[in-house]
Computed example of a mutant assay.
Amino acid sequence: MSVDLEWVAVVRHGESTGNVAREAAESAGADVIEVAERDADVPLTDLGRHQAKAAGAFFAERPPDLVVTSTYRRARDTARLAAPVGVRIVPDERLRDRELGVLDLLTSHGVRERWPDELRRKRRLGKFYYRPPGGESWADVVLRLRSLLNELSADHPGARVLLSAHEMTIYALRYLLEGLPEPELMRAAGATEVPNGSVTTWERDPDGAFTMVLAQQVAPLPS
């Protein structure tokens, strides 16, 4: 894929109340994650706001030309706290988190108990192409991110762009910018931790290829 941007960075949103609820439910072996809000409205925790501000210190020294954020509240609030003063923030629904359909709010235990047939179908199809009923596959997320990158390249050629988004975004960008094939991407994803508030960056080489230069880095970030 040809992307006419100089530098692409992603900050994963800071810790959210949904992250805390998921960890508690998984640890307790519960079926369901107790979250009152819809996914788009889940807010940051106090720690999540601190993480976003810490990432902001890094971007203050390397200001992007434009910040594009997921329309989900936790990512929008992270963008607001991390973006340098004066840099335009643009919301775009193509950066939203992957939709899980019938598996939404279920723990890994809950999926095994309530949707065993779907778990078997996921194993057969593979994680990249499996789409839960009413939800999205990894490939679906890649398609909408590809559309966004094409648009940014056309409208802001050579720009430095910061995306405020979700864990899935980092994997999709590795597929699109680095050209990782599916098997290699799945191995990398299995071995990769993407902490809340972490920063990942890519720079374009003279030949147009992208190289990851900062991988899921949390504060304090390199100067």
Rank of each mutant, 00 (worst) to 15 (best):
L81A: 13
D4P: 00
R74I: 07
P64R: 02
T107H: 10
D104V: 08
A82C: 05
D77Q: 11
G126W: 08
R114C: 10
A57D: 15
S27C: 07
F128L: 06
H109F: 06
S137Y: 03
V10N: 05
R121F: 07
G134L: 00
R73D: 07
L47F: 03
A36Y: 01
T69M: 06
L66R: 02
I33M: 03
N19V: 10
R88Y: 00
A25K: 04
R131K: 09
E118T: 02
P43G: 15
R80V: 09
F128S: 01
R123C: 09
D46Y: 10
S70N: 10
D77C: 04
D4F: 02
R74C: 05
T107A: 09
G126A: 07
R94W: 02
T45S: 15
A139F: 04
V32E: 12
V3G: 03
V68H: 00
Y130I: 08
D140Y: 05
A25C: 05
R96M: 05
R120N: 13
V11C: 11
E23K: 13
E15S: 12
L105S: 08
E99P: 00
P132F: 14
V111T: 06
R131C: 06
H50I: 12
Y72I: 06
A54Y: 09
V142W: 10
V11K: 11
L44T: 07
L106N: 03
R120V: 15
V68P: 02
L100P: 03
V35Y: 03
A25Y: 04
A36C: 01
H13N: 07
E34G: 11
E113D: 14
D92I: 00
A60Q: 14
A28P: 09
R76Q: 10
L100H: 14
D117R: 13
D4A: 05
K127T: 11
S70L: 11
L81T: 12
G110L: 00
E37P: 01
E61L: 15
E118V: 08
E23T: 11
V20A: 14
A75W: 06
Q51C: 11
D104C: 08
E118K: 05
A25F: 06
D46V: 11
V85K: 12
Y130E: 09
D4C: 00
I33Q: 05
A75Q: 00
D104I: 05
V67N: 03
A83H: 02
E99I: 10
E6C: 06
A28C: 11
A139E: 06
G48F: 10
V8S: 02
R62Q: 15
A60K: 13
S137C: 08
R80T: 12
R124C: 07
A25S: 10
A79E: 04
V141P: 01
L47D: 05
Y130A: 12
A83C: 06
L81S: 07
G134E: 00
T69K: 01
R121T: 09
Q51E: 15
D77G: 01
V85E: 15
V10I: 05
E26T: 00
R88I: 00
E26H: 01
L105E: 03
P64H: 04
G101Y: 01
F128D: 04
R73K: 14
K53P: 04
E61G: 14
L5E: 01
E37N: 01
V102P: 03
S137D: 04
L44M: 11
E118A: 08
A75K: 03
R49F: 11
A55K: 02
R112N: 13
L66S: 04
W138T: 09
H109G: 09
D117N: 12
